[in-house]
Computed example of a mutant assay.
Amino acid sequence: MGIPQDRYDQYVCLETDAGGLYVAFSPQAVTGSVPSSMVVSTEMFEELHWSRTGRTAMRCTVPFRGLRTALRTGRARNLAIDLGRLPEEQRRVLEAVRSVPRGQLRPTSWIAREAGAGQEDDVLEALRLNPVVQLVPCHRVTYEDGTPCDAAYLPGTGRALRDAEGIDMERFADFGRQGLSLLGSDTTRIFCHPTCAHARRITAAHQRPFHDAAEARRAGYRACHVCRPVTV
């Protein structure tokens, strides 16, 4: 007798910009993903999936619909994902992470606000327990000083993913070393996260950096309605 369909998931291992990625899925949604660098064998991935979900993982050759496109483009916002047994607050944190666009970064305070979470530690714990790494892109989350969190990755994995998305971490780190966190345009009088698509279009002559939102508001600037920086 075969395994009932509700007791098993299928999985594939696909190549990505940061190496191999095991991805498990049910007929309805992706149910887990783990970089191949974090497991020593397919058997280890299967055991991890069983311990987390209670479902057997069976290898297949046909990936979940939309998966290849999501990995190729870095845009998985519309991919069906099942976060499993995580508590509600951690689920909200990871859904907030999913909303960060490709090629952009957000600090933990932004994630906490979007998720209605409490402290930075609550955000970091949810990132650490992220069951769908890379597809829920926690490599796009930083500490308040601009340092990447990378709580769910081995060293180098988050960096490879950010490089593939064209995020200039050297420039961003220099920004943070000066205590700056926001970038305004003296033509529009709007301030953004430095990696916001609108901020990247500000020419050097019209850039106005700020240490925080209060400084920007005192200078007569208003927050971007697209990237919505934290203003309190």
Rank of each mutant, 00 (worst) to 15 (best):
A223F: 04
P107N: 08
V132D: 02
A216I: 07
P87H: 04
Y8K: 05
A197G: 13
S36V: 01
A214P: 00
G19K: 05
E114F: 02
L129M: 10
S36A: 14
G84M: 03
T203K: 14
T147N: 00
V230G: 06
A57G: 04
Q5E: 13
P137N: 07
A197T: 13
I190T: 14
W110F: 10
G179L: 12
T157M: 07
R140A: 13
Q104A: 14
P63C: 09
R159P: 00
A76K: 11
D121L: 13
V97T: 05
Y11S: 04
I190M: 08
Q207V: 09
G118N: 07
S33W: 00
T73R: 11
C13A: 12
T61V: 12
C224D: 05
R85K: 14
V23A: 12
D150P: 04
E165F: 05
R77C: 08
H225M: 11
D122P: 02
F191D: 05
A173Q: 14
V226Q: 07
D150A: 08
V230R: 11
I167G: 03
S51W: 12
T195E: 13
D121T: 14
E46Q: 14
A24F: 00
D163K: 13
Y221A: 03
S26T: 10
A223Q: 04
E15P: 01
V100H: 07
G158D: 02
C196W: 04
C192E: 02
M58F: 12
D212M: 12
T195H: 08
A152M: 00
F45M: 01
C149V: 15
I3K: 14
S41D: 00
A214S: 08
G166N: 10
D174R: 15
A164T: 06
R55H: 13
F25Q: 04
T108A: 12
T16L: 04
V136D: 08
